[in-house]
């Protein structure tokens, strides 16, 4: 399979690999996927009092497209408001990274991870969790 230059770039120089302190109230953590499916993505956001995402980190066990999708997602998340982050659609990731059809689910995983991190943040801060509309596979 040929990877796009952008996938290769994110894979070779992943942005924002790392871990935020998940015990902090301002940090939301999303862990999606499963090892036996061959992909696990963890995405974390740190949110300030104005509901702006000030930091985002990821770690991904998965193919190059999954790594690139999550790396890209963290780039996009920084500086966005939580509501703006919620609006990120996996197809935007597909477009930006030029993912082929068989790799669409890697981007879905990234969208799921974003939503799941936001939900974790919401629950920690006494808000209702949101419905997760899309699901991987």
């Amino acid at each position: 399979m040929a990877y796009s230059d952008k996938v290769i770039d994110h894979y070779s120089n992943p942005r924002n690999v790392g871990t935020l302190d998940k015990s902090k109230k301002s940090v939301g953590t999303g862990l999606v996927g499963a090892p036996e499916c061959g992909d696990v993505m963890r995405l974390q956001i740190e949110v300030d009092e104005n509901q702006i995402i000030t930091d985002a980190k990821f770690k991904t066990f998965g193919c190059g497209s999954a790594i690139a999708s999550s790396s890209l997602a963290t780039e996009w998340l920084k500086g966005k408001s939580v509501d703006e982050a919620l609006a990120i659609d996996n197809m935007e990731i597909v477009e930006e990274l030029a993912l082929p059809p068989v790799k669409i689910h890697c981007s879905v995983l990234a969208e799921d991870a974003i939503k799941s991190a936001i939900n974790d943040y919401r629950v920690k801060n006494g808000l209702e969790p949101l419905e997760m509309p899309k699901s991987h596979h």
Partner: peptide, 11 residues
């Protein structure tokens, strides 16, 4: 263990 095959192939 703990690395995924396809990602590894790319690496």
């Amino acid at each position: 263990k703990y690395v995924e095959g396809e990602g590894l192939m790319m690496g």
